[in-house]
């Protein structure tokens, strides 16, 4: 266990630096939206949008090989698929209410079943797709750095601009409407941001990483504080630090995939915070 060696390796290795950068930026994006996802009870929506993106990628890779598409074209198909499902989720939330989560659950399970059948029964070899699901983080080129940094800055700016109205609809959507907030438009902006985040995160890291970062940091923030801005701050801190820690552990100490380490760390943190909250409540 040579931490100094790992640090030296990091300083001298541009690929490793890029890997850290991609994980930090996607972690930042996911954990920023994570609080709103948890508060608005949309954890399954994030999972469903991710599943739709994977299905789009699946269609691109498995069924359209004759078109010889580039990775960006596949990403565009995945994006279209994810956005379509996001819109369906939005309209379902309005008309179906509680049924939305059940339908989303069926959708996500359906994708996983399709996945297993296509690999085990149909014998499909789709290594690219496995990378999207649980694979290692992408080593970014300079162009990737610009794209991901730009997207992160843009999503951060939009969230910052809409932060107060977003808080208002999380606290009391009806009152926010009376004050003149366009609740429908804000919901649309939010689901758009969520879709973009999920897409970038799956493209640059993977699906499991994305789902974990959309749920656990927000959950920890929710358990730690009752104020929205504090929840967001806690969520971002936990999201980014656990990303850095898991990649570092994965590269320097244990030979496990960083995503698995991330999930274990975040799950442990959530259980720890929940447990301490319960103990504090019992003592009080």
């Amino acid at each position: 266990m040579d931490i100094q060696y790992a640090i030296d390796q990091f300083v001298g290795d541009k690929n490793l630096q890029m890997l850290f950068l991609s994980v930090i930026l996607t972690g930042l994006l996911c954990s920023l939206l994570s609080t709103f996802v948890v508060i608005k009870r949309m954890a399954l929506a994030g999972t469903g949008i991710g599943g739709a993106a994977l299905t789009g990628a699946f269609v691109g890779i498995a069924f359209l090989p004759a078109l010889n598409m580039t990775e960006w074209q596949i990403l565009a198909i995945a994006g279209a698929s994810a956005f379509a499902v996001a819109l369906i989720i939005m309209s379902l939330k309005r008309c179906a209410g509680a049924w939305t989560d059940a339908l989303l659950g069926v959708f996500v399970i359906g994708i996983i079943v399709l996945w297993i059948i296509s690999v085990l029964e149909w014998g499909m070899e789709i290594p690219d797709l496995t990378v999207y699901l649980i694979g290692s983080s992408r080593i970014m080129s300079d162009l990737d750095v610009y794209i991901l940094s730009g997207a992160t800055a843009l999503i951060f700016a939009i969230v910052l601009l809409c932060f107060k109205p977003l808080c208002a609809i999380c606290i009391d959507a009806d009152y926010a409407k009376v004050l003149g907030n366009r609740v429908g438009l804000l919901e649309f902006i939010f689901i758009g941001l969520l879709t973009a985040t999920v897409l970038f995160s799956i493209y640059y890291v993977n699906y499991l990483f994305t789902v974990a970062l959309l749920i656990f940091p927000g959950l920890c923030g929710r358990l730690v504080s009752v104020q929205l801005w504090k929840m967001v701050a806690v969520s971002i801190s936990i999201g980014v630090s656990s990303c850095i820690f898991s990649v570092f552990l994965s590269k320097a100490i244990v030979d496990w995939p960083s995503t698995i380490i991330l999930v274990v760390i975040q799950l442990a943190l959530a259980i720890l915070i929940f447990g301490s909250n319960r103990i504090r409540a019992l003592n009080a």
Binding site: I39, C167, A168, I171, A176, L179, R222, Q227
Partner: peptide, 20 residues
């Protein structure tokens, strides 16, 4: 489970009026 303290909740009435 509303994510607000008493002060946050009351301030909500002011936010739009006084600008974002």
């Amino acid at each position: 489970n509303v994510p607000a303290t008493l002060m946050d909740y009351i301030l909500m009435g002011l936010r739009n009026v006084r600008g974002p």
